[in-house]
Amino acid sequence: MDIAFPRIEPAVAPVPFTYGSRRTLPVARIELGGVPRGAAIVLCAAGALERDAGEVMNGLAEKGYESVAVDLSPGTGAVSDRDLLGDVSVLMGLLGERGWSSEQVGLVGYGFGGRTALLAAAEFEVGAAVSVGAPLIRATRPVKTPWLGLFGRQDPAAPPEAVACLRARLRDSPVHTEVVTYPGVARDFRFDAREAQAHAASFDVWQRTVEWLELRVAPRLTAVAQKWQTHTASGAAGPSRV
């Protein structure tokens, strides 16, 4: 992520979550010029907005994604899963104001945010969703959004049996899902790059995250592409399909 792109400082401003948890929380945003590739919602791990958001959002910006980032963890209060889903729709609304439709949005969550991303994948149809090191939810529902789960095998909140169970449960989903686990690492492995296994895992996690979005988040069509749609000589019509 540290090639020669200029770093963009996310703009952080308080946003009232008018439904969902009805809190006012700081939201970081990176907006891009031109025609960006897509948009992302970054759901940070508890307490990690300042530490992580800038890094992840810049990584996504390099791939052409605008993003908003927030830490939805409850702090000292209590927030229900329902509230969290409401909070996610507030964030989708923010992106909607920038013209992004739901299929053009990817969800990327870490830790607590990873858990929220999985909940949201079961509730909403967006382009793609990725959860990194999410504490596992009991009896997860099948998802509606293609979901990728990345877990450290030493993470006490995501023991192997629970991950296996999740994997089996998600097989009933109407969309593609994938679960990848990393040996020798726990939860916060993205940030400890000195240890070889953690370094390898954090590299692979980022690679897979970006690829997952690239393969599924619908691109915003440029004006020329929109015009072109009327001039499309598509092989798609006719006998090519069963």
């Binding site: 020329v224 001039h231 000589a233 092989g235 006998p239 399909r241």
Partner: peptide
């Protein structure tokens, strides 16, 4: 895409004659 004329016909994927 500015490198193509506005009337450029974008090709889709080709397919076998029959499936």
């Amino acid at each position: 895409e500015e490198g193509y004329s506005a009337d450029f016909e974008r090709p889709g994927l080709a397919s076998p004659a029959k499936v």
